[in-house]
Design a protein around this nucleic acid. Structure first.
Lengths: 326, 326
DNA sequence: CTGAAAGCGCTTACAG
DNA sequence: CTGAAAGCGCTTACAG
């Protein structure tokens, strides 16, 4: 049988109120009494039922996290950062996906209405932004991880995409490259616009092609540029998957990397060190983004204020063989 | 203000009992009354509080999942399979890690005692096996994903590791390879012993080295074999990270893959298609493992019986350039 | 077919 | 410093 607060109270010869106080505030309880209660709690192995506590207190000590897909190459790091932070605060972490489309969203919305969690972390919302905005307006605390520049009305954490683009350009320029091919993700993402602007500020280019954040885009981008007689001595890919596709297409075309063409990616996903040659890339601190976002949300739940301005974490150029140091 | 079952009852002119019945069993309620109640529920946008339901019913409609680390390359797939299945059943998914060591385990154990979830999915428990065994004995339903051959006392889902090893050997043998170097993971993992036995059954070898499931092991394994004058024409790596390290070491030593040495890995993590050359590997159906384990647990919670024997999913050889078809 | 009442296991004014 | 009682929002015998 489950041991309840009533068992502890009886055993310790006090009221449930007193047990509860020892458990929570700790204040206003006689030291001796408190010690006895704690003793009994230990002996009985009593742990308060989270369901009951939640009901009585009106909060669940759980935060929700919504991630469109769990199989993106960098979600593991974000998730780990979030999990560590949430866990250290004694909170639970409830995970949601949009993988099953409308059904997923319905399920998710239901859990929100059911008050299954106190606050929400969202990674790159795309189709769900409206839903989430509505929830936020009804009072659900929300923090975004990488808003993709949609600049919605809630707090978020992003990275220095502009500076990241510039650092890629500066690195390439320093090693004497002058004619870049730039392959971007979808232009309606703020991060894409920022990375591009940052790059072009330092190293102008008239070879800019737009695509998706996929390997196929990288492959096609390079092939088309070569077919068009494109004259480029380096590639700035807007993420590492694009860069991997570019590497492949270059090898197939007989262009040596980095001798003929240097390549720089963005993200530093685990794969980046396994391409041939290993990828020079602009690293985004995914784990720290997760930690930071979770920390902000927890601070907000604890009654603190969450910063209105996006929190911006620094990117960092990681130099590997695809674009070596000058 | 939150709308409760009392609001619905009042508005519909019935008792809370009736509303509850409409919501749950649906039985024993007059069709007209039920329709009216449903109407009111819709208008008011009523959703039962999961906390209250859980308390009253003694279950949380949530399952827990414990993963030592979220950054392993294949956890994304497993997690996605679990999330989809759990979500489709209307359950919540509570995520736990052992990343913070003893603190994590304490936090986790607390949530178990607090009845925060009804059943538990565990991925490759290592240090926590004792804790989990104890919980299971106290009545917590548990299903393991990949028990690493520890053959504990609870249900689990694994893959055909033995057959997978054999398929790698058969493939290499068919393309005329006769002198394999085998680089394994830790021998105390059941999956390692199975993969090795399966391989050796088909293609004997006296060049077997043991290591960890890391790239470094692959690199060191190849280097040492070469230094020792080892005469091998193929490598069977016990996972893809080891294989990636082996590829690197081979390239550095000037051995061509696959001309001089063919390489086969295990797992088929996303990286496998990005190595140079892309990796031939024995694929484990990670997503299906997650789906299957979640399905078993949910079936158990629904009152069904969970199979005692491990559920074994088939591996599949994926042929890429590191070990092409004969 | 329907409802009053007890109960799930806590917390929190309120009173002393 | 301590406790009796109400309340959180549901479900579920029990009685009709």
């Amino acid at each position: 049988m489950r041991v309840t607060i009533a068992d502890v109270a009886r055993e310790a010869g006090v009221s449930k109120t007193t047990v509860s106080r020892v458990l929570n505030t700790g204040a206003e309880v006689d030291a001796v009494t408190a010690a006895r209660v704690r003793e009994v709690i230990g002996v009985l192995g009593y742990v308060p039922s989270s369901g009951a506590v939640g009901l009585a207190r009106g909060s669940s000590r759980t935060i929700g996290m919504l991630i469109p897909s769990l199989t993106w190459p960098w979600v593991g790091e974000v998730l780990q950062g979030v999990a560590d932070t949430v866990e250290a605060a004694g909170y639970g972490l409830l995970l949601f996906t949009c993988n099953r489309g409308a059904d997923s969203v319905t399920h998710f919305a239901g859990q929100v209405s059911a008050r299954a969690f106190d606050g929400l972390l969202v990674v790159e919302p795309e189709n769900t932004l409206d839903t989430i905005t509505a929830m936020h307006r009804r009072g659900l605390p929300v923090v975004l991880v990488d808003d993709r520049g949609h600049h919605p009305e809630f707090p978020s954490v992003t990275t220095t995409n502009h500076a990241g683009g510039s650092s890629a350009a500066a690195h390439l320029a320093a090693s004497g490259r002058t004619r870049p091919l730039v392959i971007t993700g979808r232009r309606d993402f703020g991060c894409v616009r920022d990375r591009l602007a940052g790059f072009l500020d330092v190293l102008p280019s008239d070879l800019v092609v737009e695509g998706e954040f996929t390997e196929e885009t990288g492959r096609a981008g390079v092939e088309r540029a070569l077919d068009g007689g494109g004259d480029f001595d380096c590639v700035f890919a807007h993420n590492d998957l694009i860069a991997a596709g570019a590497l492949r297409a270059l090898r197939k075309a007989g262009r040596r990397v980095p001798e003929d063409v240097a390549v720089v990616g963005f993200d530093d996903i685990p794969m980046a060190r396994h391409t041939e040659p290993p990828l020079t890339t602009v690293r985004q601190p995914m784990r720290r983004m997760g930690e930071t976002a979770a920390g902000m949300l927890l601070a907000g739940l604890a009654g603190g204020t969450i910063p209105d301005e996006p929190v911006v974490l620094p990117t960092e150029l990681v130099v590997r063989r695809s674009a070596p140091a000058p």
